[in-house]
């Protein structure tokens, strides 16, 4: 029973700390731009306010519009439970492997796009069209990227993959560098950050993700926003635990878990700092430059697979 409990606790930890990580990012970005920025609890206050508000449903919205936020939230929350956060061996990561993880993200995106198409406004259609187009390029890149790690670990199970990365004494594995590069590019695209998408814009020509959720309000918006924050933290945890897992707890003891939590928090803040720097330093790309960006990620991931196959094959 304890592993299940620990699994649920670490998933809840990820879910509840997601707004905080978004606030940390905002704060760091603001400091880099010589602003003071909102307080660290602002994300929680925003969510609380949205949950308390009366939602406004556009006329002509169908049940899909109301169902979609719950599916988006549930799929993302489940994804949080799959990824090992503090402990390597978790029962749920056996129930759903890394392909399922990508599938869950795809499910959440599918329903975000359906919610956007529901009213029939041009903004919704535009957002759905753009998001689905770019994700059609980003998703295979992500799959290929994690497959490189899977091939090295000989498993698609996230626990086993992290375990191998932790204990594998592989001399030089250039394929992992390719995988890391591809996954970094994809993570920025999937979480909708600059230079791919700007989460704080509402200009019709540049919106991608924001255009899809434009009609949402109240608790529905809160669920979607929260899911988005979860996705950001989740991608960071995934990248950190796959490529820099040192410190993660291998046995279920309180000191090990505490140490893992502290180290992970430190690593995430570092990664958030990098992201804040990137977002301050770069401008958003033109929409039609994005296929090149995502195509590059896809190509790098395929190169990683070929490198693994040719140089590191275990025939």
């Amino acid at each position: 029973m304890t592993p299940w409990l620990l699994n649920i606790v670490q998933a809840l930890l990820l879910i509840s700390l997601a707004p905080l990580s978004a606030a940390v990012l905002k704060k760091m970005k603001a400091r880099l731009q010589n602003r003071r920025g909102p307080g660290l609890l602002q994300s929680y206050r925003d969510l609380g306010k949205l949950f308390g508000k009366e939602p406004i449903l556009p006329e002509g919205a169908s049940w899909i519009f109301r169902l979609a936020p719950y599916i988006i939230f549930a799929a993302t929350a489940l994804a949080c439970a799959i990824v090992p956060v503090l402990l390597v061996q978790t029962p749920l990561s056996a129930a759903a492997d890394v392909i399922t993880l990508v599938g869950l993200f795809a499910l959440a995106r599918f329903f975000t796009a359906l919610g956007a198409m529901d009213i029939g406004t041009a903004f919704g259609g535009m957002g759905a069209s753009r998001e689905m187009t770019f994700s059609a390029l980003a998703e295979p890149a992500m799959l290929m990227g994690v497959f490189v790690v899977s091939m090295a670990a000989e498993s698609t199970n996230l626990s086993t993959m992290i375990h191998t990365m932790l204990n594998g004494h592989f001399g030089l594995r250039p394929s992992l560098a390719f995988a890391l590069a591809a996954l970094l590019l994809v993570a920025i695209a999937e979480t909708g950050r600059i230079p791919v998408d700007n989460p704080s814009t509402h200009l019709e020509l540049t919106m991608v993700h924001e255009a899809m959720i434009l009609e949402y309000s109240g608790r529905y918006l809160a669920l979607i926003e929260w899911a988005n924050q979860m996705k950001l933290l989740l991608f960071m945890t995934l990248l950190l635990n796959l490529f820099c897992p040192w410190g993660i707890a291998e046995e279920k003891t309180a000191p090990a878990l505490l140490f893992a939590a502290e180290l992970l928090a430190f690593k995430s803040v570092f990664l958030l700092g990098l992201l804040a720097l990137l977002e301050t330093w770069m401008a958003k790309m033109r929409i039609f430059r994005l296929p090149e960006y995502l195509g590059t990620a896809f190509l790098i991931a395929i190169l990683g697979m070929l490198t693994h196959y040719i140089l590191e094959g275990t025939a």
Binding site: A74, A75, A77, L78, A81, L92, A94, A95, A96, D97, I99, T100, L104, E154, S155, T156, N157, T160
Partner: peptide, 15 residues
């Protein structure tokens, strides 16, 4: 089991 596992029922129920 070490290679890969998928449990659709758990995935469905948890979600």
């Amino acid at each position: 089991p070490e290679r890969a596992s998928y449990s659709p029922l758990i995935v469905l129920l948890t979600s």
